[in-house]
Write a protein that binds this DNA or RNA. Structure first.
Lengths: 286, 286
DNA sequence: CTAAAAATGAAATAAAACTACATAAACGAC
DNA sequence: GTCGTTTATGTAGTTTTATTTCATTTTTAG
């Protein structure tokens, strides 16, 4: 938590002298971080040990440590924090907020991931006979993206955003099939039914969804992104971005697992795409 | 400027011992700010004055002052640096690397964006009679995602990933139409032709693509993401993530511009989706 | 009003950072 | 190569800064 806010909040828990210190800091935090303990003590009109005790009360190791914390909370605009967009934000403001919130979200997702489960998911995917990606609504573009990635691996892979097609695909499934279901909430009814259906047909179900959700319960393996649900109507689902990055992680794991000869294949695909492009050299001549 | 990046940038201006210090700090900035000068000297295997000289070279008053700056830049900027995945990385390593690289990429994209152009794009979009999103290959899922977002606004919006459909859609176009073309490189031939065709039919063309690319030249308005091209075959196109976030930004700008009564509409859409979901309360009872 | 507890500061101690200087390495001219 | 110069680095000592100890003052409860 922001140190400055912490001081403000705890103002009444301090003793008389400690409050003097608190007020001196709040009055000019910039001065505080560039002062020695002796200097700050003089400004606050207290003794040095009082300042020291004040620092410890705020769960820091001492004055230098406190200065570090304070410096961090002074650092411009507390980024990487989910800041909601306001009605009166200008383009500058909402652009920054959205980018920063997304980064904060990715950071949270990263910390919440279980790499053991990722490893298992990669295991399962590399051994699959056929992989399908299903998502609905906003998640369908994630599934679509996953298709695009795995398609390059030259393995049987499909992606449907139509419930009927998803069901048919499941019914025709067999052992060795892996179904990856993508849903932020894990509460989308049709998708939960798909998970059930897939498992009844001996497919292995990997879910990219919230822990403890109905979908999670119906899946063989759950990769949960500890991303909070959107509280804000403006803030458009960063969770989806985290899902995409997770897809990237799985793809990378897959590539690494398959080894060197497999990677040559990827280079060929990349080269193949090139032909449909304007060459960079040509272009610079234009 | 971000202290960490500053160190990285100036790596070659340092002397041998100073570089050791720099590397020790880059390896673990968190450790650095919580160490004494003696401790850091030991980690970097140099003497204390060397550390001190290193600090001064970076325009700080000394070690404590340097720690303050570093602490601020850790709180402020990205401690994330684009690190490539190695063949022998474990799940832990490649997961971190991909998430961190993506965050670094978003940070770069954020800093490279021109908010004036974003504002103009929002202008154009709010005044459009009809909006179309076109992308091919990996970018088609971005277009798909954009469709999903703008669809909620209850305005005529479409999305095609089929070149023929894209062409037909352009030919039927008229003034007031806005076409958003998405391409990382801006060198995908069919898409460049689409841009041309769209403009011939009086549509306004917004491109989410690289500066100075053929596609950029054919567009009315270019939103470029200063994201470097992927050098690594493992690292799967973070640019696409940046594009998605940019879509989020445009969506948000759109929502804000349309004002309060319009936002009620969004709430209705969100509520409408809810019916297809398992309720959270029900679920927790299960 | 008094005794116990809490708060505070003076002084001493400990730790950290910095400076001056000596030595070592690198560089260039011959 | 070798001598002289410049630059880099470390040792040891000095100064600054932070912390601890303990005596004094203030507050609080009975």
């Amino acid at each position: 938590m922001n140190t400055l806010e912490l001081i403000k909040k705890n103002l009444d828990t301090f003793s008389k002298s400690e409050r003097k210190v608190a007020e001196a800091i709040l009055a000019s935090p910039e001065t505080a971080i560039h002062s020695s303990i002796a200097n700050l003590a003089k400004i606050a009109e207290v003794s040095e040990p009082t300042v020291n005790r004040f620092c410890r009360r705020l769960d820091t190791k001492g004055f230098p440590d406190f200065k570090l914390h304070l410096a961090q909370s002074l650092a411009n605009g507390t980024p990487y924090v989910n800041r909601n967009v306001n009605e009166d934000d200008g383009p500058e403001a909402y652009t920054s907020k959205i980018f920063e919130s997304t980064m904060a979200c990715l950071n949270a997702a990263k910390n919440g991931l279980d790499t053991n489960l990722i490893n298992r998911a990669v295991d399962v995917l590399t051994q699959a006979n056929k992989i399908s990606f299903f998502g609905l609504g906003a998640s369908s573009s994630v599934a679509h993206d996953a298709l695009n990635k795995f398609f390059r691996f030259n393995i049987p892979v499909s992606c449907f955003d139509d419930i009927v097609m998803q069901r048919m695909s499941c019914i025709n499934g067999s052992e060795g099939d892996v179904i990856v279901l993508i849903s932020h909430t894990g509460r989308t009814k049709p998708l939960v039914e798909i998970a059930q259906l897939a498992r009844e047909n001996d497919a292995f179900v990997i879910a990219l969804t919230a822990e403890d959700s109905p979908l999670a319960e119906q899946s063989n393996l759950v990769l949960s992104l500890g991303v909070p649900e959107d509280t804000d109507i403006y803030m458009p689902m960063s969770s989806r971005i985290a899902q995409l990055v997770l897809i990237d992680v799985l793809t990378t794991g897959f590539t690494l697992r398959r080894g060197a000869k497999f990677r040559d294949n990827l280079k060929r695909v990349k080269a193949g795409i090139k032909d449909s492009r304007f060459e960079k050299t040509n272009d610079e001549a234009l």
